[in-house]
Simulated scan of single mutants.
Amino acid sequence: MPEKIENPTIAVLLPCYNEEVTIGKVVRDFRAALPTADIYVYDNNSSDKTAEIAAAEGAIVRREPRQGKGNVIRAMFEEIDADVYVMSDGDDTYPADAAPAMVEKVLEGYDMVIGDRLSSTYFQENKRPFHNFGNKLVRGSINHLFGSNVRDIMTGYRAFSFTYVKTYPVLSRGFEVETEMTIHTLDKNVRWYEMPIQYRDRPEGSVSKLNTVGDGIKVMSTIFRLIREYKPLPFFTILGGIIGIIGLGFGISVCIDFWNSGVVLRFPTLIGSVLLVMVGLLLIIAGIILDVMAKKDRKQYLVDKNMFAYMHRH
């Protein structure tokens, strides 16, 4: 583990969209938990008084015109410099008093600390059963693929090191960004730590911006895309193998007919089976090539991360 930073600078990041009911309390809570931190509220085209209330509570308010949580986080990571970053939501569902312990873990050398809701009160507090099902589905699929044991894949309460923030490419535009972040962490084998936190449901008057079906589809499509990018060899090998086996099955049926009759009775089926086998083989070859490129990308990430760590120390 690296040497601890003396008097670290801390930035609290709060992406917000129409959170006037809760944002004042959230800013006050984080101010009490981390008195030396700079608290940033990024207003994402709110139509209420979110920005005004946050500014009145002493937060640094900035605006991000590109709609979507992923766009806000991209702007935050690009514009803000600090030794430790704490990211939360403006809806008062995450406890600010857990932030000092998360900051301490980053200072010990972890690149990302995950605030784990699912091991504590999430399933009791969250009143949306499809959200609970979605969390379990995403967690199971990602842990199985990467051989990991992350308990909360989609939490919005996290802490980061400087090098993680400056080397993580935020590609997602919306709420699927947390899933992307977790997969990136597992793929690049960075140091991460998971800490149980007490989750509470939104207070009365605060409305969730999540769309269970729409955002659920986005999350699953993001997982599909990231598996294709980060794990191309198993992805394309399985896909190519399935297509190749189907083609082989059609080819065998044509061969059986030829064995019994002495003539090829189904030329279109024979041609189709050969094409399917060829497509299967091409997909497997593509998977091998893309896997080499993915390993090269991991190497380049380590070089970039080491460079930013050196720049940050000096």
Rank of each mutant, 00 (worst) to 15 (best):
I256P: 09
L270G: 09
D187A: 13
G205K: 08
R158M: 12
P203M: 07
F162S: 09
G216T: 12
M154P: 08
I60E: 04
V41E: 05
N189I: 12
F162H: 12
P234D: 02
L270D: 13
A286L: 10
V113S: 02
G134D: 08
S46N: 04
M311L: 06
I114L: 03
R191H: 06
T50G: 06
D89P: 06
I284G: 09
F160E: 12
T167D: 13
G68L: 00
T93C: 15
D187R: 12
A75F: 08
V26M: 06
K295D: 09
A37G: 07
E176H: 11
G115N: 11
V213R: 03
P95K: 07
L210W: 14
P95I: 01
G244A: 14
H314V: 06
V61W: 10
Y94L: 09
T93F: 05
D291C: 11
K295V: 10
V207M: 05
G214Q: 04
S46Y: 01
N45E: 09
G68A: 08
P65L: 07
R66V: 03
V61L: 07
S208H: 11
D83T: 13
N71W: 13
L290S: 04
V27I: 13
L226D: 02
G244K: 09
V207N: 08
K209D: 10
P196V: 05
N126E: 15
C255L: 15
F267T: 11
M195A: 03
V84R: 00
Q300G: 15
P169Y: 08
K231W: 03
T155H: 00
A82E: 05
M181E: 05
M112N: 08
S88T: 13
V292F: 10
E64G: 07
N18T: 03
G214S: 06
V72I: 10
I256E: 05
N132S: 14
V138E: 10
K25W: 09
P196D: 00
Q198L: 11
R66Y: 08
M307Q: 13
L13S: 04
M76D: 01
Y164K: 04
Q124C: 10
G287A: 03
V254P: 02
L226P: 02
T212Y: 12
N44M: 13
E180H: 09
L276F: 05
Y40R: 13
P15T: 00
P129S: 03
P232R: 03
G280T: 03
G247S: 04
T121Q: 07
A98M: 09
P129W: 06
F258P: 06
I197K: 00
I80L: 04
I183Y: 11
V213I: 06
M307A: 15
I197P: 02
K69N: 14
R128T: 10
Y301N: 01
L239N: 04
T269V: 15
R28Q: 15
I80P: 00
P203S: 05
K188M: 11
R202N: 11
V103S: 04
S273Q: 10
S261M: 00
I183A: 14
Y199Q: 02
F77R: 12
V113H: 02
Y40H: 04
K305A: 03
S46C: 01
D91T: 04
G240E: 03
P169E: 08
L290Q: 11
K136Y: 15
P100Y: 00
